[in-house]
Amino acid sequence: MTIEVRNIVKKFGSFTALDSVDLKVGKGELLALLGPSGSGKTTLLRIIAGLDWPDGGEVRFDGENALARGAGERHVGFVFQHYALFRHMNVFENVAFGLRVQPRAVRLNETAIKKRVNELLDLVQLAWLSDRYPSQLSGGQRQRIALARALAIEPRILLLDEPFGALDAKVRKELRRWLRSLHDEIHVTSIFVTHDQEEALEVANRVVVMDKGRIEQIGTPGEVYDNPATAFVHGFIGESIVLPVDVRDGRVELGGKPLNLEPQGAGAGPSRLFVRRHDMQVGPAGSGVIEGAVRRVRAFGPIQRADVALPGGEGETLIEIDTPRDRELNPGDLVGLQPRRYRIFSAST
């Protein structure tokens, strides 16, 4: 099943949650919608599911207009952020629900329902919990039951809203790997929403980065990390050192002094220089294009992290750099910084 979203607009009162969003999802993909809260990612997911309705635009499943159908007619499996398990039903009945509410003509008989539910509980490795009620389950177990319930209706699309958001860090990592392998097994077109970049980069085939109701970039995890399309993406994904620079006569200037860096097509005017922290090479004074003075050094696991002050037009800029622990670095030292890779974006973008 492919999904095509065209020019979707959604407003809540005067707030624009989605601002003409276009998106294509290929068959069998596992796509992440990544963005900060308020970026519109959950709203987009709910519109695809039929739980919210756009003010304009189209949603097509395999070319067919999905907006003509209600949530129940789209065959979409939806996993809610807080699972939304039916609290008065046990695990078995929760998973069986989607099968039991089918019209009589197409409904499976009791034996078939039992068989199917047990298969699903085996799939999520929780068959032993089938008599329990949601309140008796841990967060991770609820999550997997919610997934089994969504899969029971043999959905053409699986949508997950912050699937790991409410779990603690350890369970989250485990479930992440498990979801990835589950997707490899069942291969249903899936979209999940997350605000956690690590989660998106590790699990998804492709990542859609959103901000303020717009899509900033769509690409593989490698693409969005290595070639961020916008300043927002560069700042949001991975840890970056950001420096305010000016582009003048095709040259990049920091605090009025020219730097030996390519403007990369950024127009004249105030711009921002983005460097991944691990791409910033630290050497003795005079060894790089940027000079700075070390202010504070502290051990940080296997590395040491230093605050380095750079002279700027209006006062100095403080940045954090990382160096290996064995490198001698003291407050007051002058260092030279050389970006191995960098991006420059006009401040207006």
Binding site: A49, G50, L51, G70, A71, G72, E73, R74, H75, V76, G77, F78, F80, A84, L85, F86, R87, F97, G98, V101, Q102, R149, A150, A152, I153
Partner: peptide, 10 residues
């Protein structure tokens, strides 16, 4: 919970 039920086809 109602949304979940609807999305499951109820």
């Amino acid at each position: 919970e109602e949304e979940a039920a609807l999305s499951l086809g109820a």
